[in-house]
Design a protein around this nucleic acid. Structure first.
Lengths: 230, 230
DNA sequence: TAAATAGTGTCTATAAGACAATATTGC
DNA sequence: GCAATATTGTCTTATAGACACTATTTA
């Protein structure tokens, strides 16, 4: 049995933090200060530390970038990206995470020196990201799109209290479709555990005030919220 | 900016290879020869090599364990397991993969010296696996269960040509339920791109011969094959 | 013929989708 | 009142599920 030297590699957690701003799906990107790809946009991320798991790395980075506690947010693995040449300097394997955030007041610069921005996903797709982050972003958005069908994660895009109309805008922004308002309202309010009414109403400048809801206890949606066939 | 030494870790790909034998969902496990956990059962897996990605590591291990080409099989990431103490010897982070195989003639021992067995998943769950492989197995099976609803991967459990009854047995074994034969037949054959008839029939020792089908071109199932709420 | 498995028909309950109608606010 | 948004009602169509029934084989 020939024993070859066992390779060790550097590990990072990269974050695809999504939110919705003015009805547009946006992702948090940072400007790179150092080579390689200096000046280019990239996903936030950081190296694994000795005492933590990658999930903890992701949670720590999320807190540093957004100031939010990962316990409050939806945070899940997207996948591992391990092409040998994905980082030109050295071998780095990354685990990508999808985080879903409500509309934050600002991308608080945090303790990190890099400039962070919310940019529309479509725009980022056109301009491109450093490393293999285009691929990661694509996969993460596709995951979010799929999960909206079967899980209650849409509420993670909303503040603690939200209207059914706001929840509908989440689906419309992520899926890039228009949904029928009356049918959506019924489906959501009749789906057990998806949302629960607070009893309060939010006044509106234009029309009838909308009832406020909180996220319900359910994790999965059954029956699923089917995405209209293109 | 304090620069802490950047940790590097060993990376492995571990495989949850599922198949169905006599109507029972089975997983390929190996007996460990070395410490730690010598003599215990574990999932097959191996270390990342310098020139390859983790997906390639997984495909290589799969070929070594089953003799099958990963190109023919369903192989997908389950997730990353990176708890600092998951391997008592050293820091090892693993990426778990789910592979779905048709009923193979034998778990060909392959070039690897370890003894490989197909064991029922329920049995393995009771007896337990080395490391955190119980958790990995649980997650992989749960992933397979969920994917059966929305993707056409059930055909990966079948040989090139199969009957609708065999496909139904896949769902019944993985979900642990009984499905209505007439309704299943209709649903599968009417779902665009799920299966395509070969025109052949397979004689049966007992009753009417069943028509043979091949996997169709579709990847996703719409509408989904809903799992009965138990 | 009976036994066994494959496959079809049919009815009912539930959910999806279109869209009209009503409700509640600010102006 | 009108404009705007929220919510409810109603009808049509699609799908799910139960289950009776027919079809094709071996013994």
């Amino acid at each position: 049995m020939t024993r070859r030297p066992r390779q060790t590699v550097a590990l990072t957690a990269d974050l695809v933090i999504l939110t919705i701003r003015e009805g547009v799906l946006c992702v948090l990107v940072v400007e790179r200060g150092n080579e390689p790809f200096a000046g280019r946009l990239a996903l936030p991320g950081g190296f694994l530390r000795g005492e933590e798991s990658l999930d903890e790395t992701a949670a720590r980075e999320l807190a540093e970038e957004t100031g939010l506690d990962a316990a409050d947010l939806h945070l899940q693995q997207v996948g591992v990206y391990s092409a040998p040449d994905r980082d030109p300097r050295q071998r780095v394997v990354t685990c990508a995470y999808l985080a879903i955030a409500p509309n934050l007041p600002l991308p608080s610069a945090g303790s990190d020196a890099r400039a962070a921005h919310w940019l529309p996903v479509d725009e980022v797709r056109r301009s491109g990201l450093a490393f293999d982050h285009d691929e990661i972003l694509r996969d993460a958005v596709e995951l979010a799109r799929a999960e909206l069908q079967f899980r209650t994660i849409a509420t993670a895009f909303c503040a603690d209290e939200f209207t059914i109309g706001e929840l509908r805008e989440v689906y419309e922004a992520v899926w890039g479709v228009e949904l029928d308002k009356p049918n959506f309202h019924r489906k959501v309010t009749e789906s057990a555990g998806f949302v629960e009414a607070t009893g309060e109403k939010r006044p509106s400048p234009n029309g009838r005030p909308a009832a406020l809801y909180r996220a319900g206890g359910a994790v999965t949606l059954s029956p699923p919220m089917m995405r209209p066939r293109s």
